[in-house]
Design a protein around this nucleic acid. Sequence first.
DNA 1: TACGGCATGTAATCGGTTACATGATTTA
DNA 2: TAAATCATGTAACCGATTACATGCCGTA
Lengths: 190, 190
Amino acid sequence: MTAASPAPPPEPALGPSAYIVLGLLAQNGPGTSYDLKRWADESVGFFWTFPRSQLYAEPQRLSALGLLQEAQEDGGRRRRTYHVTPAGLVALRAWLAQPADFPELRDLGLLKLFFSAHGEAHAVTALAAEQLALHRARLAEYERLHAHLTSCLPGPEQVQPLRMGLLYERASIAFWTEVQDGSAAPATPS
Amino acid sequence: MTAASPAPPPEPALGPSAYIVLGLLAQNGPGTSYDLKRWADESVGFFWTFPRSQLYAEPQRLSALGLLQEAQEDGGRRRRTYHVTPAGLVALRAWLAQPADFPELRDLGLLKLFFSAHGEAHAVTALAAEQLALHRARLAEYERLHAHLTSCLPGPEQVQPLRMGLLYERASIAFWTEVQDGSAAPATPS
DNA sequence: TACGGCATGTAATCGGTTACATGATTTA
DNA sequence: TAAATCATGTAACCGATTACATGCCGTA
């Protein structure tokens, strides 16, 4: 490699939360960390969570990298408002173009089920009941949200993940029902 | 609170990976970190991943807490073999009895879909195709594993999580197919 | 004006990830 | 016996979670 291509800073490879911040800001215009929290809570928050403090730390990292620009107000709370720079948009697009690796379920319920042989006898029943309750509640919530979204319609990309959520919840309910009904079930044809 | 109840060490609240180690050791007898890796790779690894080095660090933490006992061999590699102590079993059972909080999808594909408005025009198509490939491959793998497991049958608890995996993969395939077929789809009845 | 809750941030800690480094075993 | 692979571990870094601390604002 010649001196002609000094290779721009080696790109520290941002994590998912960085792109969530970039994406949310790109979508909803400039905002503060608290705005980010509110936006996340009613959208991505449903399938990707993180503590609030990340939404203070992450924008600062991104500012340092030039992907966001920060404006701190003088009076009152001196709060920081961020907006995406052109470089930030480029980074976002680059990330969107890269292939996404495999999703992970990260389901503590499944984990406990897997090890349930070492628990109390009725542990599985309790677990199934509890998981059913959780998933039913979540399903109801998704259905509300879905109904609500189809009215104040954004682009379909923002509704689709919710549809996957619905599919997942229905599958979960089917699964835990099956578990609850005991191992009595005969061979279940695929 | 009187001096009569000195309250045993405040229990540092272990993370999931700690219980994976405890559970795997409880299930498969004593073993080394490498054994843990192999066991995980063909079971829990499918719905809960972590780097190999965790399987060296975690057992040491657990030993320090008295939940595992370590035996280091003298000759050769001086490798460490761990086995679960009674206290470890108690901790495992206590964890199993606690309610599990809600699972998270953590799906980068969904995330990218959600923000896809800011990418190239064909980004969604590419994403859908790529995700379909991933999920089809995974589904095939699960089906192989399922067939294999039903032969060398362990308890059903160890097969059930895999069944959830199957349900999830089928749902995912349905979802991304729907995405791929474009927003042309009319109202999809639930 | 006092109080409660909303808003805004920082500090310390810790688990998880990457990278490094090396020893043992098998096989060509 | 050299090479390749399997096995085993450590160190450093960094993102993420928890906890702390405080400021503003609406309202009683």
